[in-house]
Design a protein around this nucleic acid. Sequence first.
DNA 1: TTCGATTCCATTATCGATAATCTATACGTT
DNA 2: AACGTATAGATTATCGATAATGGAATCGAA
Lengths: 231, 231
Amino acid sequence: MESNDTNTLIQSSKGDGTIQRTMLREVIRQRIVERILDGTYMPGTRLVESAIAREFGTSQGPVREALRDLAGMRFIESEPHRGSRVREVSLAELVQVYPVRAALEEVAGREAASRMSEETIGSLSSELEEMHRAAESGDAHTQLVHDVRFHQIIVEASGNQILIEMWNSLRVEARTLISAIKSGSDLKLIAEMHRPILHGLQIGDGEVAGREMRQHIEFFGDLVARVSKTV
Amino acid sequence: MESNDTNTLIQSSKGDGTIQRTMLREVIRQRIVERILDGTYMPGTRLVESAIAREFGTSQGPVREALRDLAGMRFIESEPHRGSRVREVSLAELVQVYPVRAALEEVAGREAASRMSEETIGSLSSELEEMHRAAESGDAHTQLVHDVRFHQIIVEASGNQILIEMWNSLRVEARTLISAIKSGSDLKLIAEMHRPILHGLQIGDGEVAGREMRQHIEFFGDLVARVSKTV
DNA sequence: TTCGATTCCATTATCGATAATCTATACGTT
DNA sequence: AACGTATAGATTATCGATAATGGAATCGAA
């Protein structure tokens, strides 16, 4: 319940010239997200405003705002007068994500293909490489990180701001459940499955890239759907 | 600046058995949205927390929360220590919306086709009818309302909660710019363009319905894209 | 014991005031 | 006059306290 190292939330930022726009709400939000992602706050955990405020040494206000933001990002859910708790990510919901993600990424691939720079191609190649490296050491989690990053790069390369915001709001990186399934799969194969996408982008063919991305996501969607039925 | 009729924000709700879960933040949010949509708050208008609070007879807190929600919904944009203003909906942004919307609605059509009830078909038919009625009286705005509703019904019929949330966050109804363009078009033709979609859904063919929806949206996307170049 | 009403407690929702920060204006120096 | 700096006013960010609410525990009657 107590904390000592967490109390320095605000760096007065005098010293370096950079203006350190510190907003309490932001800091608190990040802190909570970390805890959700690393499992400190498991799904279902109640997040009590006053308790968090006390722990962080702030007042209730900023905590409340942080929680509201988190609710907007679907990390938590809140009911009036009843507080907030970490959201349960159901398998059923995960299944619903895939068709949406497939559709969005198809658009991303199509639009990104004509906007690829050498640098972007380089980043993608290097993420792919990292995926393989992780596959060899059997590190499913690390592979997932690079996997997500690979897709994110493409979405951002689309240059479509709406698309980017929309994709980010899917919180792909937070729905880590897949890693569980992946660990049962062939990591090397998974890494290799990204190559056709990269190829499509390299030759600048939007139709190919889009189609490959869609199929890629749909593949995992089917995988998850199958698992969810088994359960 | 002053207001008299707007001060009764909370109905104590004693009397009728119904529990009137009134949350100040919610009421204020709705109020502001109304004003944005009806043009009282034009794009660029500054929304000053204390001023709104004074006008509504509340404290700054709930107003602040309402504004934060609105920022999440992309109705307004806020900068730290600099306040909020009504967002400018640029034409460029509007152009970017269409590919995303097309992709999402294709999924919606595909998934909805197998879940159509008599009732849903009825609702869609009636919206289509209303579109025609509006077309005949040359009422572009009313037609737009039913147009949006038509699409919304399909998205909701998909049963995919993620998809529904995602589509709603596009705020299709708020990006009313299209109505301007539409008024220059043949309203009857626009209404009629919804019929193939309805047909696809009626025969329960997801592929057809999905494809029709995509093409439908892409059509208007191209229209807007063309206009945006002209400007 | 079991059901319902009542009281108490934890927590959220709101308030009013203060601190921090921004923008623009006024001022002084060159 | 042009420029940079200081000051004032407006506005947001945060605080600490109070009111409103919901849920659980308690009590009493059947």
